[in-house]
Structure formats: structure tokens, C-alpha cells
Nucleic acid binder design. Sequence first.
DNA 1: GATGAATGAGCCTTCATTCAT
DNA 2: CATGAATGAAGGCTCATTCAT
Lengths: 213, 213, 213, 213
Amino acid sequence: MGAKVTKKEVLTEFRTQEILAAARRVMERRGGVEGATMEEIAQAAGVAKGTIYLYFASKEHLISALMSQVGENLRRELEAILTRPGSAWERLLGALQLCLDYLRRERLLFPVYFRDLPRWLSRANTPFQRIRQLEEEILAQLTGLFSQGISQGEFVAADPRLLACLFRGLIRGVGYYQWQEAPEIPLTEAEPVLRALLGGLRRPRASQEVLSS
Amino acid sequence: MGAKVTKKEVLTEFRTQEILAAARRVMERRGGVEGATMEEIAQAAGVAKGTIYLYFASKEHLISALMSQVGENLRRELEAILTRPGSAWERLLGALQLCLDYLRRERLLFPVYFRDLPRWLSRANTPFQRIRQLEEEILAQLTGLFSQGISQGEFVAADPRLLACLFRGLIRGVGYYQWQEAPEIPLTEAEPVLRALLGGLRRPRASQEVLSS
Amino acid sequence: MGAKVTKKEVLTEFRTQEILAAARRVMERRGGVEGATMEEIAQAAGVAKGTIYLYFASKEHLISALMSQVGENLRRELEAILTRPGSAWERLLGALQLCLDYLRRERLLFPVYFRDLPRWLSRANTPFQRIRQLEEEILAQLTGLFSQGISQGEFVAADPRLLACLFRGLIRGVGYYQWQEAPEIPLTEAEPVLRALLGGLRRPRASQEVLSS
Amino acid sequence: MGAKVTKKEVLTEFRTQEILAAARRVMERRGGVEGATMEEIAQAAGVAKGTIYLYFASKEHLISALMSQVGENLRRELEAILTRPGSAWERLLGALQLCLDYLRRERLLFPVYFRDLPRWLSRANTPFQRIRQLEEEILAQLTGLFSQGISQGEFVAADPRLLACLFRGLIRGVGYYQWQEAPEIPLTEAEPVLRALLGGLRRPRASQEVLSS
DNA sequence: GATGAATGAGCCTTCATTCAT
DNA sequence: CATGAATGAAGGCTCATTCAT
């Protein structure tokens, strides 16, 4: 009997993932949430339209689950990098590389993340609170990193949370650039420039300089 | 007689601006183009639904006009700054300040700009080509600035267009940050950090260093 | 004072005709009533949209007046022909020629007459009763002609009103044909065939034949 | 299993016909296509508005299907009659009877056929091309009949296609008459007169007469 | 559980008509 | 009288969601 329950659970999990994958494909193809109809997602998943609603309460819940998956993974991998030994700068470079990797990997999902998610996040009572939470956790990880770096004298003195936000903003800016302007330019070309930019945050050794206009 | 024509023109201009302002308000309130219906825009403008179509041929034309207004102004002001005398770095700082000003001023319109415009830009035969053109012109202005800076040895050697894109990406990242995360943090606090980041692009005087990992 | 009133009347009449002519042009161009907007008619007439409503109570009244004009003329000319001396057959040929002339002349108005008028005629309390009346009068004229022809032994015995209706139906069929199928074929080619067809109604001299299956 | 598929197909076919019948009823009631809204058609069919779009891609497709049904049947039955043995005249009488039957049967659909179809036929890339094709085929059938009749000396010398068009025009004229003027007069009364008229096309035996004024 | 036919609220757009100037 | 900006009812169509089978 326990086996049977497990079997059913496995099947449920399988279907869930199948639908999520289908939703991802369709959204990538249609370039966003609005263009992706439940009908098309169902077809792509090889199930009937009504079946989706057995696994997800609504379209929003479906999208939410999809986005959460990515966030969950990013948070886990980011955690691994940030707890590595080494200087804050080295770990920041690791985080940069990871984020650029995600940009590359999830490139096609970017429009959804960028355009459609924000609207939903602004609404209360939405299934997207989980994503908001994940974003907050990721931001907290980065904030912790900058905090360490500042207290260890590696980075210039600044609000660590602001630095984290700007780092994330920078990554998003790159993603947006890649998405809108230059899908043909490999992100690897952007990495040195990003390093140079972030290098601007490093505190010159044996220097009393502070940020000033 | 001339006065009458002027009167009519003034009224038309007034209504046009009134509707644009209403559209802006509704989009801000609804968080994007999709959520803003012509009905609600009309109500916000204090006119009937059909009246909007006396001033704009379609919803797309209306949005297009709204976005173009902002782009037009930004381009003009940016041009003024970039043609000022001074070092490339000084002008870059000026551009930075201008863009941050725009972010502050057009803060509420940002979601529209960020999320909805991209989809339309990807379609041909759309009234949004004007905006695409404006974006390209602005990008060209920035590219020119970086180009000068590089050839004059002020900035590290890199593709100037990539730098321009990253600059813009950075600004957008900040805007996105401001929009989503910290409407309460005044952007003025972000400026020094942005300067520090951009400072990473400056070439150390009398140095042959190039970007390397 | 009397002169002034007359002057005004003349102007009113002039405007009325001008608007009617414009409506005709627009309907011809647009291929019917539905495609012709009051806006376009007003432009074609060189007046403002609202002005039309000073001369015609509604779009229906305008169309009605336009169609009545044609019917009025046809009836008058038909009357002239039918009161000419000569055999019923000769007068029938005269009527045929007249109707074909009208078809040629009013060719471009035919779609309106054929498609749009009928719907309105079927409604009560419509300004189109005048047209219905004109049609009835024209039909009565033709009925009278056939009636004479039958009583004088020129035509086979049949309900004269039915014959009149069929004659009209034949004309309309030709018009429809011309309109839909062969605008390039001059109607003159159809005339001999129509004569042959109508000749089928003539009673063979000194014959006792009656219509039978 | 086969039964299940059949069941579904039967249901689909049933609904399709049900909607077509509803559309027919509404158009008859409203006197044309323009007056018949999808809403009202849906109500008449006892389904929701959206349901229609499960069976027909658009309003035009719906109307097109309706008209094609009739044309398809007429063409088939006409073909059966025209390939019967016998003189051209006998077959022409058969065709006449068939067409009058259709006029009687489809009487209420006539306005649609007469008024609305023509406008659509003039547009390219429309689902109505099938109807255009049907019309052409029917006309070709009639043309062939006249062609035979002429070459066999049964009918006066004339362009057979013109004769076919006039025949069709005559039928339409009768239909139009019936529709507008005398729904109370049974068409059976019109048939002898039509025969007489068509008889005018017959070539007098052993005569060299040609059509002349 | 799975299905997919059915639903209907909601959207953008048109255009005959009105009325303040 | 003339104007034309403003109106708003109505129409075709979409698609997330429901529910009988």
C-alpha cells in the first residue's frame, strides 16, 4: 500500500515536471506569459487542458512554480559558492560567473522573468510570494557577502544591501542587454568588462580613499 | 481668425496631453499595458472611450506616443551633455546623472518601458518603430562617448558599443531595482556606488594594463 | 422678403442635392451603404458631419431620398413611354430599353439598390415607404401595359401583375448579372436575348395555344 | 472504441448543424448577415458565444459554410438533371424546375445570398472562395446545356454563357420578386410564364430567323 | 483521475448621432 | 445656420476556467 502511494506520488511528480517543462517551452516560444495559452501548454505537455488544473490551481500558480524552480536552484548554487573559503572578491567573481551562467542557461525564460513576473509580484494574495521570498533570500546572501567584504576592508564603504541590489541590477542589465540587443554576442565577452566594473568597488590597498564625487 | 485656429490647436494639444497623462496614470496603477484598458484610460481622462480614438489611432499608437515622448526628451538632453567640453569621464558622469534623473522622474512609467515595450518592438509594422529609432540613437550617443574615451586612453580597451550597452544595462538595472525593491531608497544614494563601478572602466594613468581575469 | 425666402430655399435645395450626390459617389466607391460612413459622405460633400443632419434626419433618410430620386425619374420616363401610341409589344420594348438604360446609368448604385434597400424596406416606420410606393406605382404601370396587351390578344393569357413582376425581375436579373459577372459585357448584347425571351410571351397570331406544362 | 469516436463525431456534426441552423434562422429573422450578431446566433443555437468559435473560425467562416451547403446541393442535383437524356429544352425545363424548387426551399436564405454574399465574394483571401467556385461550376453546367442546345439547333444563336447568366438572372429575379413582393403567390404560378419566356429562346423549326430588333 | 467541450467576462474598435460653440 | 469634437452602444473575438462524462 505504501508502495502504491509512492507510485502515485511519482506519477504526480512526473506529470508536474512535464507540465512545467511544457510551459517553459511554450513561453520561450511565445516570448512571454501573455502569448502562452493554457491550450498550447497542454498540447506541449501531451495532456488535456483540464488536466493542468489537477496539478496547478491556476495559470498563475503554474508560472509561479516554474519561476520558483529556477530561483530555488540559483539560491542553492549561490550558497555553495558564497560559503567557499577565499576572499570576498574571489567569491564575488564566483557569484558573477554563476549568475552569468544562469543568464545563459535560462536565457529563453528571461522575458518571462523580466516582463511578466514583476506585475504579479506587485499583487497581494498571489501565488508568487514564494518567488519574492526566494529573491529576498538571494539578495540576503549577496548582502552578506558585501558586508563581509566591507568589514574586511576589501570593498569601499557602502550600504551592503545597496551593493547587493546593484550587483543584481547589473546582472539583470546584462541579461536584458543580451535579450534585447545582442543575442549573438556571447556573454563571455561581457565578463571582463563586468569584472572591471565590479573592480571599481574594491578598496585600493593602503589607501584612505573614500567615495566622493 | 488666426486666434481661432490656435485655440483649436491648443485644445487639441491639451486633450492629447490629457489622454497621454491619463494613460500614464492608469498604466502606473495597473502595472503595465496589458492591465490598462482603453475604457479605464478614457475614464481617467474624463472622456468617452471613443474620444481617445479621435486623438490616437489605436491603443498601440497611444502607448507609442507616450513612450516616444520620454525617449525624445532623454535623447535631446543627453545630446546636450555629451557635446559639452571636458573629458570623457566627466561627460560620462553627466550622462549618469541625467539617466538617474530620468529614472527618478519617470519612475512610475518604468514597468511599461521595461516589460511591455520589448514585445512590441519585436513586431514589424508597428507604430513603435519611432521608439526603436530613439533607442538606437541614444545608444549611438553613448557608444560615441565610450569610443572617444577609449581612443583618448581614458577608458580600458573594449568594444565601445558593448560598454554603451552595459552602461544602459546598469541604468536599467538600477531602475529595476528601484522599481521592485526599494522605492524608499533615494537614488542619490546609488550614485556614488555607480560612480565607483564605472570608475572600474577607467584606465590607470601611465599604465599598460588590459582587462584580464 | 419673398426673394429672400426663395434664396434660402434655393440654397437649401442646392445643399440637399450636393449631399445626395456626395452620398451617391461614396456609396458607389464603397460598394454599398454599410461601407459608406457619414463622415466620408460629409467630406465628399464638402460639409461637416453635423450639417448633413440639418438636411436629412438620419442616414436612412438620406439613402431613402437618394433612392427615391432614381425611382421618381424612372417612373416619369416610364409613364411617358407607356402612354405613347402603338402596340403593347412596342411599348414593352420601349420600357425594356428604358430600364436597360437605367441599369447602365445607375450601374454603380445598383449594389445599394440590390443589397441594402431590401433590408430597410422590410421594416415598418421607415423613411423608405416612399420608395416602396414608387416601386408599386412602377409595377402598376407595367401591370397596366400587360393587361392591355392581354386583353388585346397580343400576349398570352396570364396574371398581368405576375408578368409585370417577372419583367422587373428579369431586368433586375440582368442588372445583377452585369454587376456581378460581366461589367465588361455591354448591356446592348443582352438586349436581343431579352427581346427573344419576352417574345415568348407574345401570342402567336391566329393560334389557340395557351400556356401548359 | 470505434463507437466512442463515432459518438464524438456525431455530436460534433450535430452541434455544427445546430449552429448552422441557428445562424440561418437568425439571418432570416434579421434579414441578412449584418443584422445577425454572433451573440444572437449563439442564443438561437442554445450555446454560449464562445462555443461557436469551437466550430467555426470566424463569422465569415460560419456564413460561408452555410452558403456552401446550399450551393453544393444545388450543383449536385443540377448535374443529375443536366446529364439526363433528352433534348436541351427538356433538360432546361428540368433545371428551371429544380431552381424554382430551391427558391421555394431556401426562400428565407435568399436575402443573405443576394445581398451579403456579393460583397464578400469581391474580397480575396476569404473563406468564401468555395462559394465562388460553386457558382462558377453551376454556371458552367448551364453554359454547357445552352451550348449543346445551340449547336443542335434547338436554341437561337447566342453566346451560351450569356444565356446561362440570363437564365440565372431570371431565376434570381423570380426569387427576388418572391422575396420582396409576393411571398403569398406560390411559385408554381410563375413556372408556366417562365416557360413561355424561355420558349422565346427556342429556334422555330425549319426557320433561319436570327435575333434582330 | 483525465478529458476537452462549453462557458462568458472582457477586450479593442467602429460609427451614427448629438450638441456646445 | 454650420461645425466637428464627443459620445457610447454594439460588435467580433480570446482565453482562463469549469464540469459532465
